[in-house]
Amino acid sequence: MEPKRSIGLAVVGWLVALIMFFPILWMILTAFKTEQTAFSMTPQFIFSPTLDSFRTALDQGAGYWHYALNSAITSVISTLIGLALAIPAAYAMAFFPSKRTDFTLVWMVSTKFIPAVGVLIPIFLVYKSLGLLDTDAGLIMLFAAMNLPIMVWMVYSYFKDIPRDIVEAADIDGAGTLQTMVQVILPLALPGLASTGLLALIFAWNEAFWSLTMVDHNAATLAPFIASFKSAEGLFWAKMSAASVLTVTPIIVLGWFAQRQMVRGLTFGAVK
């Protein structure tokens, strides 16, 4: 009975995986088709692949690299800023908790309950008067703020994992706050910090709402790049798929390399 059940489970597992993977597969396949084949009503799995869509996509608008660079700058810098803010915040909450610590944590995450569109108008107006519309700096601030609650929460839980005794031992050994942080806490929480950073990076890279609303051309990231292929007339599925492949590939490759770090960080007890 045992082998039978595990075969059944394996079949179900594969099926679910296939269903989840299918859209991605379809996107990749479409990217290598001509617009005509892509548009055909009968799904085509066998066709002669072409790189035409990629060629067109790379030259679209200001060119792929303009958008990719903006995406890289905004996601990397917003992640670094997020970490720089989340680490001290989580440190205070994990090692010097007060009566309000739990409330603060919940409150921070509760800000994510508001749909982004609910604050679109005020933020748009503020950005407009500050001249932050269509700037990398503007997007960076939004991304950092958007990711901060989850980053604080994650770093907090990794810090919580570090036995308090160890921090106190460093204190008694003569280490100041900064020395304790740099020489004891950060090395111990490193896997966790890496996965927090990676997650923030992915969120920022894939962000679409603010990237489409607050940005016109200068600071346009890969999300507006993909969106720019949508047009009222003509065929665009293949080009759009090619652009999407170009967009997700870097982050998937990065995620894949970082995966081992991430798994280690996500499994608690890395410290003990």
Binding site: E168, A169, L188
Partner: peptide, 27 residues
């Protein structure tokens, strides 16, 4: 605490897990 010139041995030992024994003692 760091200026009291006191050393403490904890029940959990509280050694720094990422440092060698030498570095623990030399910290």
């Amino acid at each position: 605490a760091r200026d009291r010139d006191i050393a403490m041995v904890f029940q959990s030992y509280a050694l720094y897990p990422h440092m060698t024994v030498f570095d623990n003692m030399a910290f």
